[in-house]
Design a protein around this nucleic acid. Structure first.
Lengths: 236, 236
DNA sequence: CTCTCCGACATTGTATACAATCAGGTCTAC
DNA sequence: GTAGACCTGATTGTATACAATGTCGGAGAG
């Protein structure tokens, strides 16, 4: 049997975790077309492992919703359609409205969290004034911003739910930040959110986060619609 | 090998799904003490199956957070502590505040959903006037109430997140409904929520759902505290 | 008496053999 | 020509053998 070489650098030392990580990575970045069929033996060949770890990996991915299991007939990768993407943006909104409201009302829990928020402020002020970054980097920073807020609210379960959502939205955040001026408007929105939180302005914080998230949702919505329209016009 | 007989009536025809279902059931109902250790071979014996399906089941439960994997040392059942339970109640609150706000603003999406809400109203009116039910049944109906609201809002992803939370809270809902008069106050709160939604009274709906959920959280909180205190006083 | 090292044991990790199931196509009866 | 039984190949489902790894206790040195 061949070593782990071909598999993503795995912190857990077992094959099936590595396989989960790589497949998830591929699926999230849309390296597979939607509805792409995955079979166990095929994956065994690509990873040079036996069926046991592959099976376990697929089963985990299936419960996480990244692939769908066809009984006795294998698996297909399960890409979210436009409706589900927008739904995920709304769940984000629900969770984050609650988060900023909480933060604005009660303030960050401890010193560390306060420092984190200060750091966020610096990051996004710098971003506003200075260097233009790639969409991928912006998407990463944006995700970090929102997860740091949840972290500061001190609710681990909420953070966990937010993370599972963000995991699925990664690619769409990149699409979002491809839009001209989106970076700049995000900076303003993020700074406004932080300001409202420190000023304990609850309605302001809610409004700001809502604007931020809905702008993202709208950008993604139009981008996908455009892409589909283009694809259609080429065909005909 | 022995048949599925001993396993919960499984709709999916494979062993590992059945094992997941049974184990989850046991864990949710606290049939295992917290930190109870589970080993593969032990489960093989209890279910009369080989290690393959058991392994897959455990791995799924681990990703769902029902058990924790100790590398190379087996699994322990992962019961939520009091803090996490309260966190889950807050995530519920975040999601449901958004739900009722959505419903109050835009109304239920279609005829079916409208009918569902009417049904809810009837159910909880009957409950208010009539028969007293067992805590278990009330917990079930309560869960159904809240999930029906999410359903009516038409956001499948939101419903999915709510369900994973409710799954973990089942036992605590029962504890909640053990409290005297909790059934009655729940009826009033639920009816108020429905009334506010149909009257498009957004702040009213938000306040009502908040009261409903926080009362539950408080009941569970004090019940657990009491139980722990009792356990402690017995010991000393 | 204590500390370290070693080895047996318990447990998971991986590979593979065999059984069960299902889709799709072919062959036959009518 | 068409319906239906049947065969076949592909694929997952299950069991088991073997490898790797970590735990725990006991023996021996200091």
């Amino acid at each position: 049997m061949i070593r782990n070489d071909r598999i993503v650098e795995g912190e857990p030392s077992n094959l099936s975790s590595s396989i989960v990580a790589t497949l998830k990575e591929h699926i999230i970045h849309w390296h597979y077309p939607p509805e792409h069929r995955l079979t166990e033996v095929e994956l065994c060949k690509t990873f040079n492992v036996s069926r046991s770890p592959v099976r376990e990996a697929l089963r985990v991915l299936a419960t996480d919703g990244f692939v769908k299991k066809l009984p006795n007939r294998g698996y297909v990768v399960r890409q979210h359609n436009i409706v589900e993407i927008e739904e995920l943006y709304e769940v984000r909104l629900a969770l984050e409205l609650y988060t900023v409201e909480y933060l604005a009302k009660r303030g960050p829990l401890n010193k560390n969290d306060k420092e984190d928020l200060v750091k966020l402020k610096r990051t996004w002020t710098d971003l506003l004034n200075g260097s233009s970054k790639k969409a991928e980097e912006l998407a990463r920073l944006d995700t970090l911003f929102h997860e740091t807020l949840a972290q500061a609210a001190g609710n681990k379960m909420l953070l966990r739910h937010l993370r599972t959502i963000n995991e699925r939205l990664m690619l769409f955040r990149m699409i979002d930040f491809d839009k001209t001026d989106r970076a700049k408007s995000t900076c303003h929105q993020h700074l406004k959110i932080l300001k409202c939180i420190t000023a304990q302005d609850t309605p302001g914080a809610r409004a700001a986060i809502q604007q931020n998230i809905e702008e993202g949702r709208n950008n993604v919505h139009t981008a996908i619609k455009d892409a589909l329209a283009r694809a259609y016009s080429i065909k005909t």
